[in-house]
Nucleic acid binder design. Structure first.
Lengths: 219, 219
DNA sequence: GAAATTTTAAAACAAGTGTTTGACATGTCG
DNA sequence: CGACATGTCAAACACTTGTTTTAAAATTTC
């Protein structure tokens, strides 16, 4: 077997990942994938069985490769920080990952397909990727708003925060088209994250009826 | 010519709209569309020329049919209301439209395809549909935060608000999966809209450095 | 080195795609 | 009536799709 980083199987998964991310499962053709991977079409049958199983392999590859913000921040070190500081970092990292990710962008792009147009195969990866983030964000928010706030309110606040972040990723074409290139290009990752942080802490303070929170915003 | 509400051309556009909304342009097949429209495949060539032109006709149909919140609220009657009241209504109507629309859902679903996976044909419809809303929301926000706030900040606030609303529509499958059916089913349109309104006014107040705004939230 | 196994390659397969053709109705007007 | 545009239909077209077959090459194993 050739070195594992360059064998046909790996090349296929990565080429397929790119293709699926770009055009979605249906529109990506096996011939184009194999051409990109410098492999023969029959290789798909040989290594995976069929196209769907290749897609499953891609999803699994995403799952094992993509580091998870929820898991990273679950460490004891992070737990020691102030809740607001954790939230600030959470938002910043999430914005960074979506708007300035250096690693292969198709990991995220595939997740986006699964988030907007779910397939049966993808549900598990979504769960494994998003659940830790949701759990962790919930924990942070409960520390901020206090644990006498009903759970569904926590969820709504979480959705408000994540919704803001995802907007810049999912609808960046629209955002750019509407705001215009001049204004849109002025926006930096730090600026966006900082805005969402400020905006959200204020929102949390109101929902939790703790106006003093706003004064604690440190940037 | 048969009555215009039931002629072949109209049936084709509507069946195609449903199909395109459901599966996207590529995955929707002309035979399936024509079967649903009780028309022959050749009818597409006869009335539109080809599949892409049929899609263009669908987009145009969406454009002329779909009423526009931005235009509706541009009326003098609405301008008379307090800015916060306008914002509250804007958010409520937007949430309603996305989560409890009684009219054919495929209008919105097609817009969603164009917003996440734009096609050359769709750009104009997006512009025509979203521009009035963006313009109007901007106007409302400027009244709230004051006109000494830089334009890019206004845009960021707008994105924060719209991002929250769209989250519930674009990612409702994820939201439901994460929060669980029990909690998710408790959420009503009014509740969601009210939450986003409160959350956002607080955010605006902070960004504009006008904390007194929060006290004016009327629900 | 020979046999067995794993991997690649080209070509063919059946089913599906959007598109087109030409015949056949149907209604309209001179 | 006949001529003509309008609309519909089944069938075929050229092409692409995912999948399979068959065989040769490369690699491993004995």
């Amino acid at each position: 077997m050739p070195p594992s980083s360059d064998d046909t199987r790996t090349r296929l998964v990565e080429a397929a990942g790119l293709m699926f991310a770009d055009k979605g499962f249906d529109a990506a053709g096996v011939r184009e994938i194999c051409h990109e991977a410098k492999a023969n079409v029959a290789a798909i049958k040989y290594y995976f069985g069929d196209k769907r199983s290749l897609y499953k392999a891609v999803l699994e590859h995403v799952h094992v490769c993509k580091e998870n913000l929820g898991q990273v921040m679950a460490s004891d070190e992070w737990q020691a920080h102030a809740p607001l500081h954790q939230l600030k970092y959470f938002i910043l990292e999430m914005v960074k990952e979506h708007l300035a990710s250096q690693k292969p962008a198709w990991h995220l792009e595939i997740m986006l397909w699964e988030m907007t147009r779910p397939t049966p195969e993808g549900k598990e990866v979504i769960e494994l990727q998003l659940r830790p983030m949701a759990t962790h964000l919930k924990k942070i928010l409960m520390q901020i708003v206090g644990d006498d706030i009903p759970e569904e309110t926590i969820w709504k606040c979480g959705f408000s925060i994540v919704g803001q972040v995802l907007f810049y990723y999912v609808h960046q074409a629209i955002a750019r088209q509407l705001a215009g290139d001049t204004i849109y290009n002025q926006l930096t990752v730090e600026q966006i994250a900082s805005h969402i942080y400020q905006f959200s802490v204020a929102g949390l303070a109101t929902v939790a009826n703790r106006p003093e929170l706003v004064t604690q915003i440190d940037s």
